[in-house]
Design a protein around this nucleic acid. Structure first.
Lengths: 389, 389
DNA sequence: TTGTCGGCCCGAGGCCGACAA
DNA sequence: TTGTCGGCCTCGGGCCGACAA
């Protein structure tokens, strides 16, 4: 029985180990989380140097320090044309990030920009997937991976239940197009789905720990894709050893300032999981939020947060202040200029400063239908399998 | 028999895992190689932005590209006061690097600077050490480490040869102050020194491969120190995912320019093994080389290179050209402005451009004494052990 | 439904001297 | 002097159902 070389470890059919080849967008978005969207190529966006700086500071686990020079000719936001977006994943950690190429454009024609209101087509691919947070047993060397029943039935190819212990070999592709092979078996009493051979190689290869999550997707070609999402451990101290933290911060500002002065291209990396810093915002979204809503102290709002298992949940809060986050350096910036309080005590730290485009203001409570009168059609089809939840 | 917790893996007595605590200078210099020296704190140095940029490019494995803006107000070299030097080692790779804090100083008083000629005290510690390039057997999981006889006798504590198979436990400290424990045994027929238990944990922990080298030092307190030097593999593509390559290069230039304009401090990382870019040069060394020697086309010179096993060897060459490396961006720079040819075909690629302070010009062959008449005193003490080499 | 454990088996890890370069 | 190998043993990796949450 000739088995392919994939039987031992991951197999990468790509030519080189880099991630420069095309990343599967479905998998990338799934790993990035339900709240992450990227602006469309060719659209106009608003770039916030301040937010960019914050992301770098978070990546370096270091505060933005005082003695970084001001760039007086660099405004707190730049309107840019988005020339390109490429998806990437860190070769070491599988952390997803996007590279965007921006071109600052002349903002003298303010009216035209206000009129710019490209429909916000969210072209996030929607696919079947499941996500499980790994238990101690899943990551221990003692055994394999316990597959939630629903997950196996929804995502994996169906087993041949005529066998007394149904088994099959699964192949799944990760963000780097490496193929991982697992033995999928349905056994035990009571019966359950397990991944055995191949699983521990995956766990050690990706350095997964209990608390991290894995993510299986079935794409439209019925292929399995495999992603990981690490628990919020402290960002490992990336004290670069190449560039000082100061040089990095200055580099960001100088690169943007230079591009703005010459209307030339510059490149940024957006790392959606490093920190909540969406520092490249679609202009349409920005305009709609800034000019569409009258925010005021005491105003109530909703805001979406990511849950475990890749869902979203909205929390409610109140605007408690409106002020520049850094009035010295970035005057009149809309970047996180709303101070907020939250109704529920924080499950996981909630931010106390947000930007206006992140929230949904509740204009008047009167218009909110507390419970839809006609419930969404739930006429249960008789004969459908269970799912009484 | 109570054994300490060190019997399994490395033990780090430091409080946190960072390398911010004091690195052992002897070990640092040994890992950096015989040609690396660092300027003294408080001395004057010359900083070359061009060379700094080269190092970053080498670290990123990416060419310095065109569209990086000129900084017209940033000269090709800055005279700086060296405020501080701290030694570091990369937490992942153990690669050594130094952080230097520089302050550009006013260069209007050129005369005074020329007079500046602090004696170049090379305060590199000299210690007993040995270095071995790992063989396939050393790194395979099948066995331990074969210790060269001389090395064991010179560096390790003496064994108790009254035992029929002498054994002892060795403890050695790496750059991060982690303690590694090895079983040192003298056995086999013929007898040889081996490191067995503990060795494979070290190899896998440091991700050592055949061709890499290990380095044992005995310091003046008779403590064992342990360093590694990786073979010249391709610098793993550090495509940062945090900052674009352009921003990094711009950041370097902008940080230096800002510091020069304000005579304020700035920080650089010098990574001696990433690339041959000694971009912070003692002013005394620079002055001596630039003003002390008349270089001309066809001039012969010597230059030192590092050998394996941490020795040095000098190769001879001829100056074939004198020109700016990048006349557009860095005019009148002395940075690698000498084009050279070498007498011997390159064992390992030799550079074809060097800076004048890297070479020893041979003024006239007449003054060079080919062999000292009185050899250095080698009156062999009778009764001294072997060492007839 | 699924997390953890005890049982059991097997193969990689690892210590040894033989042998030869 | 020392790099590589065959022999041999041991221990942890890993597959199994039991059992209980």
């Amino acid at each position: 029985m000739m088995k392919g070389p994939a039987s031992a470890g991951p197999e990468n059919p790509g030519v080189d180990g880099g991630d420069s080849r095309t990343i599967n967008p479905e998998l990338w978005y799934a790993c990035a989380g339900p709240l992450v969207t990227l602006p469309s190529v060719g659209s106009l966006v608003v770039y916030f140097p301040q937010g960019h700086s914050e992301q770098v500071a978070a990546s370096m686990k270091k505060d933005i320090d005082a003695h970084i020079p001001n760039y007086p000719n660099l405004p707190s936001k730049l309107i840019c044309l988005l020339h390109g977006v490429t998806l990437h994943a860190d070769a070491e950690t599988d952390e997803v990030y996007a590279q965007m190429t921006l071109q600052p454009i002349n903002t003298c024609d303010e009216k035209a920009l206000l009129a710019y209101d490209l429909a916000l087509k969210t072209n996030k691919p929607q696919t079947e997937f499941f996500c499980k947070t790994l238990t101690a047993s899943d990551t221990s060397t003692h055994g394999g991976f316990s597959v939630p029943r629903r997950a196996a039935e929804k995502i994996f190819p169906p087993l041949d239940f005529s066998m007394q212990t149904p088994v099959q070999e699964l192949q799944a592709r990760d963000l780097h197009d490496s193929v991982w092979t697992f033995r999928h078996i349905y056994r035990g009493k009571p019966r359950r789905h397990l991944l055995t051979t191949g699983w521990s190689i995956f766990v050690s290869g990706k350095k997964l720990l209990a608390g991290d999550s894995v993510l299986f997707i079935r794409d439209e070609k019925q292929q399995l894709l495999l992603g990981i999402r690490r628990a919020n451990r402290q960002p490992i101290n990336m004290s670069s050893s190449v560039l000082s933290s100061d040089s990095m911060h200055i580099g960001i500002l100088a690169a943007a300032a230079h591009a703005a002065a010459n209307s030339s291209l510059f490149t940024v990396f957006y790392n959606p999981r490093a920190s909540p810093s969406e520092f490249v915002v679609p202009l349409a979204k920005y305009n709609k939020a800034v000019y569409g809503n009258q925010v005021s102290l005491g105003m109530r709002f909703r805001m979406s947060f990511e849950t475990e298992e890749l869902g979203t949940r909205r929390y409610m809060g109140t605007i408690t202040g409106i002020s520049d986050l850094d009035p010295g350096r970035w005057k009149n910036s809309n970047w996180r200029n709303l101070q907020v309080g939250w109704d529920e005590s924080a499950p996981g730290e909630r931010r106390n400063r947000v930007s206006i485009w992140e929230i949904e203001p509740i204009l008047t409570p009167f218009f909110i239908c507390p419970q839809p009168f006609f419930r969404t059609k739930r006429s249960r089809q008789p004969g459908m399998p269970g799912a009484s939840a």
